[in-house]
């Protein structure tokens, strides 16, 4: 069913995505796919020398997961702005869940603007990413 502006209400919990555990192989894959070859993400020795318990996920992988959650809900073309702050390191084994809700809606330049907030947290409710995004719908 197509998403329409009139049916979206402030406070609606519109995003809920639960991902399988992050794996080391996934970090290697993401490094290759994105070109982020910082060894913090793929080499345990380098990560330990930097003070971590082992490799940590690329922040952009977690933002990519948040983006997956966003465009599971709205079409990509509706997405106009997307911001995140990285709050904590994500480790292999972490199970990320992305939740988001509608914070504001308004009409601007004959478009329906919807602003949402989101957070990505792990199985212990440690927040990895806090963010917001803005979408524009035809009205």
């Amino acid at each position: 069913m197509e998403l329409v502006f009139e049916d979206i209400n402030i406070g609606d919990e519109v995003i809920d995505l639960l991902k399988p555990p992050i794996t080391k192989v996934q970090l290697v894959r993401y490094a290759g796919a994105s070109g982020d070859f910082n060894p913090l993400h793929t080499d345990d020795d380098v990560a330990r020398a930097a003070g971590f318990d082992g490799v940590i996920a690329q922040g952009m992988l977690v933002m990519g997961i948040a983006a997956q959650a966003v465009t599971d809900w709205v079409p990509k073309r509706a997405l106009k702005k997307f911001n995140v702050r990285f709050r904590g390191a994500t480790r292999p084994g972490d199970i990320i869940r992305v939740l988001g809700k509608v914070k504001d809606k308004r009409v601007e330049d004959n478009k329906g603007i919807v602003v949402c907030t989101l957070e990505a947290a792990d199985q212990n409710n440690d927040i990895k990413v806090l963010g917001s995004f803005e979408t524009a719908f035809p009205i």
């Binding site: 910082n38 060894p39 913090l40 380098v46 020398a49 930097a50 690329q58 922040g59 952009m60 933002m63 990509k76 073309r77 997405l79 106009k80 702005k81 997307f82 911001n83 995140v84 702050r85 990285f86 390191a89």
Partner: peptide, 17 residues
């Protein structure tokens, strides 16, 4: 130095696909 940095924030404004 790569090993001393962390990604703090990231944002996009989209105009075309």
């Amino acid at each position: 130095e790569l090993s001393r940095i962390m990604h703090a924030e990231q944002s996009y404004e989209y105009y075309h696909e």
